[in-house]
Structure formats: structure tokens, C-alpha cells
């Protein structure tokens, strides 16, 4: 799997499949990118589990915080790595030790560790690096288009509303193939 760009179908497949996401390195501060992403994904129906040793035992957005992946008492589908790239190998090792193993290791925008990715892939996990699941959800559901962002998707099919309310969109839709996630310029620029 090339990690320079990802086909939309790959990202959409992951975001459509996973239900429980452990976010490692979430901040309890409500102005941090990790908090934004956690809250957004929670609001889009994902079962979000915060992981942060400094916050263990507390709650973030009403969810109990765990110190490490191994402490989580339920199976998780995806690990979202909100830590610097140097910590990725250790987090991948912890993820591979889980029973059952998660299906996906997702490293945040600005985070890329090819060695950790290779280890995860050798263990049968899918890997996404240097992307934000909030941005990718927003892009593939077209929500992000409300902000004038180039979603790099194109379709003559209408979008679907997600659940309650009027300003939440679903991933369950069709777009013209050929989109890729935000291009390599993203790699040069940090962010969530």
C-alpha cells in the first residue's frame, strides 16, 4: 500500500466499516485539534474511546479515559494516533497485542512512521497516515464543502442526511471514482 496518496474507496471503506475508535493522545482541552476530531466523530455515531495516561479515570466528553489501549474492556476497530511519529511503533505494538486485534491504525495529519506502518500491515492491519478522520469524513460526506474546501469528489448523486438534524451528512453515498485524499501538500503542512 502506497502511503503517499490513498484512493477515496480505501478511506471510505475504513470509515464505513469501523465502529469503535480509540483515540490515543486526546487532549482534554476543548480548543485542541484532537478534542475537535473526537467530538466530531462522536457526533457522527462512532463509539469513541479516549486514551491518555495523564487523564486516566477522568471523562472527556462524557467518555471514560483509559491510560493505555490494553486497559480498554471492549474490542476496538481502529486506533487513531494523535501522538508524534516517534511514538507510533509503541502504539502499534500495543495494538497488535490486543485480542481481538483492531482492523485499522490511523495516524493523524502530520504523523507518518513507515516502520510502524509496515509492522501493522505485516500483522494484517490496514494503515492510514498523515490524514485526519474528521477531515476525511467531512470530505467524503461533502460536509466540508460548506467551508469552501476542495473535497476532490465529484458526483451527480445527492448526499444523504445523517440521522437527526439538518447539518450532518452521511458517508453512505456515491461519488465518481478517482478521488484521492488531500494531496501531498498536506504532508508539508501540519494540522489535524
Amino acid at each position: 500500500m502506497s502511503h503517499d496518496s490513498y484512493p477515496d474507496a480505501y478511506i471510505r471503506g475504513i470509515l464505513n466499516t469501523v465502529k469503535t475508535i480509540a483515540m490515543v493522545g486526546i487532549s482534554p482541552k476543548d480548543n485542541r485539534p484532537s478534542y475537535f476530531a473526537f467530538k466530531y466523530l462522536l457526533d457522527r455515531g462512532y463509539n469513541m474511546i479516549p486514551v491518555n495516561p495523564g487523564q486516566a479515570g477522568h471523562e472527556i466528553l462524557g467518555r471514560k479515559v483509559y491510560a493505555r489501549l490494553g486497559d480498554i474492556p471492549e474490542p476496538i476497530d481502529m486506533v487513531d494516533v494523535f501522538r508524534a511519529a516517534q511514538y507510533a511503533p509503541q502504539i502499534v505494538a500495543e495494538a497488535l497485542a490486543l485480542k481481538p486485534r483492531p482492523q485499522v491504525i490511523w495516524m493523524q495529519l502530520g504523523v507518518r512512521n513507515d516502520e510502524a506502518a509496515a509492522t501493522a500491515e505485516a500483522g494484517g492491519l490496514k494503515v492510514v497516515m498523515n490524514r485526519c478522520p474528521k477531515i476525511e469524513y467531512g470530505r467524503l460526506s461533502s460536509e466540508i464543502s460548506w467551508m469552501g474546501v476542495n473535497s476532490r469528489t465529484l458526483t451527480a448523486k445527492r448526499a444523504n442526511i445523517f440521522g437527526r438534524g439538518v447539518q450532518r451528512m452521511s458517508l453512505a453515498r456515491t461519488t465518481m471514482t478517482g478521488g484521492t485524499t488531500i494531496d501531498s501538500a498536506a504532508a508539508k503542512s501540519k494540522g489535524a
Binding site: 475537535f36 477531515i135 498536506a186 494540522g191 489535524a192
Partner: peptide, 9 residues
């Protein structure tokens, strides 16, 4: 903003 919105900040 740059940290939060990356390459469209």
C-alpha cells in the same frame, strides 16, 4: 488555526 485546519488554514 494552522494547527487545526492544516493545509486549508
Amino acid at each position: 488555526l494552522h494547527e487545526t485546519f492544516g493545509n486549508f488554514a
